[in-house]
């Protein structure tokens, strides 16, 4: 995707000072490109270290290929960068136990995370992967809040979790799909067992 056509994450223009700021380019695994401000990147420990180590100049950013983030798709990455842009410049919480951790979900975050569970879990995964401490805190809190006062059956529905029986059946189906001979061997083994043979071979 060309730079001109790249979807640009909404940026609060008023918040950008007059001096020239650098915008880094990132590419998701489905080849969607994002331009993210230097300040917003600081929310991600991983990306921040990465751009520091790369030592890109403004020209490099434009001329070199976008930095690829292989295992996050465009939809998730868009949410991540929206969050980073909104919270740019904010202090990153230190997670060393020295400060009591009380996680409150701000209104913007609550709205951002008003998405289907699959995408929410992907967002958590991306926040962990990119080491965005506060996004990880609020998203984990959101998932935890979903458990409040639910029965185990409701929890299965809320978290899209299979029951043990469904899980076993899915595993068996996957195994069979991988090795069609396995089922035959298993049936043969069962048959021999029924016939009273102790040894399969």
């Amino acid at each position: 995707m060309s730079v001109e056509n790249a979807p640009v994450v909404d940026v609060d223009e008023a918040a950008i000072p007059v001096e020239k700021k650098m915008y880094y380019r990132f590419e998701s695994n489905d080849k969607k490109e994002f331009r993210v401000s230097e300040l917003a990147i600081q929310q991600s420990e991983t990306l921040n270290r990465l751009v520091e180590a790369m030592g890109y100049t403004s020209e490099d950013v434009e001329n070199k290929p976008a930095i690829a983030i292989e295992n996050i798709d465009g939809k998730t990455l868009k949410l991540v960068f929206q969050w980073c842009e909104h919270h740019k410049g904010e202090a990153i919480p230190v997670d060393d136990g020295s400060v009591p951790k009380i996680v409150e979900i701000p209104e913007f975050d609550a709205k951002l995370m008003d998405i289907d569970n699959g995408l929410l879990f992907k967002l958590i995964w991306a926040a962990d992967y990119l080491n965005i401490v506060q996004l990880l805190n609020v998203s984990c809190k959101k998932v935890a809040n979903m458990a409040q006062g639910k029965t185990p059956a409701q929890l299965r529905r809320v978290y899209l979790l299979p029951s043990d029986e469904e899980d076993e059946a899915a595993k068996r189906a996957a195994q069979e799909a991988q090795d069609p001979r396995a089922r035959e061997v298993e049936e043969e083994f069962e048959e021999r067992k029924r016939q009273g043979g102790n040894s399969f071979f």
Binding site: F121, D128, A144, A147, K150, T151, D164
Partner: peptide, 28 residues
């Protein structure tokens, strides 16, 4: 897209109250 595959499941559980955690034990 599955909760059980999250590498930070412990972080999610640390935000869950003890009563809800007891119920989560019964899920799978």
């Amino acid at each position: 897209t599955r909760l059980e595959n999250l590498p930070v499941l412990d972080k999610v559980l640390s935000n869950v109250g003890s009563e809800d955690q007891q119920k989560l034990r019964l899920v799978c």
